[in-house]
């Protein structure tokens, strides 16, 4: 058995230092719901585990003065659900985060881990993309920010530089008339991984869409920002033609694989159906419905 060490630093600098010094032999531990499975299956053999949950910034949820939110990378889904305001402002993001696994998993799993695991089917990622979330990362070279959609590079791979750690997400302030939603299609009602996952964020003014973003998961090597779908909705009053165009854009964006969870034909068809349904929910929320 190879030597393995565990560190639970209290500061980010300490964590970054240890992580970078390990030169790729280290793994970050947030909720651990992916890492421990990978270790058990022999897919991950870290020499160093850096537990980031003792770093205050990593587990904080802060409502910013401008109305935005900052979420630490290791915040669990359960903590997010317990926050008094977050779910009111970003119900779609919260739904997505809390679709990751069961209650047991929600008590541990974090949006930061979900993003860094870089599964094309990560539930929180399409919702974060739709929300226009920005990721803060810190590495030996310092801090930088990148849009969520820029982080995944392919199944299990990210565009983080060596030694970089995701610190948190910043979600922008919400103008009046905004709403978001996340829907996924899974073979079973709970405890499953998406065959298609789709997040929508809308802002409406007088019934006209003034802002629209669509994130689409599980249909390509990475979760996608489908700009054409957002553009198809922009300026519309969500007429059937605009919805059809946005659904078509989602289907066109699909580059899925046939695998144990679904065929190409099925995933593509369902992507369009989910777009229309998620838009309907987001629009209802934007207009003050639930």
């Amino acid at each position: 058995m190879a030597e393995i060490r565990y560190l639970a630093p209290r500061t980010l600098d300490e964590a970054v230092g240890a992580f970078a010094a390990a030169q790729g032999a280290a793994r970050i531990l947030a909720g651990g719901t992916d890492l421990l499975v990978q270790m058990r299956n022999g897919l991950a053999k870290p020499g160093l585990i850096v537990d980031i949950k003792k770093i205050a910034e990593m587990t904080e949820i802060a409502e910013l003065p401008d109305g935005g939110f900052r979420i630490g990378a290791a915040v669990s889904g359960a903590m997010l659900a317990e926050h008094p305001r977050f779910g009111q402002v970003w119900p779609g993001v919260l739904e997505a985060v809390n679709l990751i696994g069961s209650k047991q998993v929600q008590g541990r799993a974090s949006p930061g881990g979900n993003l860094c695991n870089a599964s094309p089917a990560g539930d929180s990622v399409p919702a974060m993309i739709a929300a226009g979330a920005v990721v803060t990362v810190q590495g030996p070279e310092g801090r930088r920010q990148m849009p969520v959609e820029a982080v995944p590079a392919g199944p299990g791979r990210t565009n983080l530089r060596p030694g970089e750690i995701v610190v948190g997400f910043t979600l922008p302030p919400r103008p009046a008339g905004s709403g978001d939603a996340y829907l996924r299609m899974i073979p079973r009602t709970e405890m499953d991984i998406a065959v298609v996952g789709l997040g929508v964020s809308l802002t409406l003014a007088g019934g006209t869409v003034t802002h629209a973003r669509v994130g689409l998961g599980a249909v390509a090597p990475t979760v996608l920002l489908v700009e054409e779908a957002g553009n198809a909705l922009l300026g519309s009053r969500l007429e059937e033609a605009a919805l059809d165009a946005a659904a078509a854009a989602c289907r066109a964006a699909c580059r899925p694989i046939n695998d144990k969870r679904g065929t190409i034909a099925y995933r593509t068809k369902v992507a369009g159906v989910l777009l229309k349904r998620a838009v309907a929910i987001a629009a209802q929320r934007a207009q003050g419905g639930n």
Binding site: A8, G32, T33, R40, D51, G101, S102, K103, Q104, M191
Partner: peptide
């Protein structure tokens, strides 16, 4: 299952429900 998918190892940690197979003992 050993992968956090079946719940047979459910315990609470500081009152929160978790799968004991998905948590390091050192944590």
């Amino acid at each position: 299952c050993g992968t956090g998918d079946c719940g047979a190892c459910s315990v609470t940690v500081d009152g929160r429900l978790v799968c004991a197979c998905l948590m390091l003992a050192v944590e």
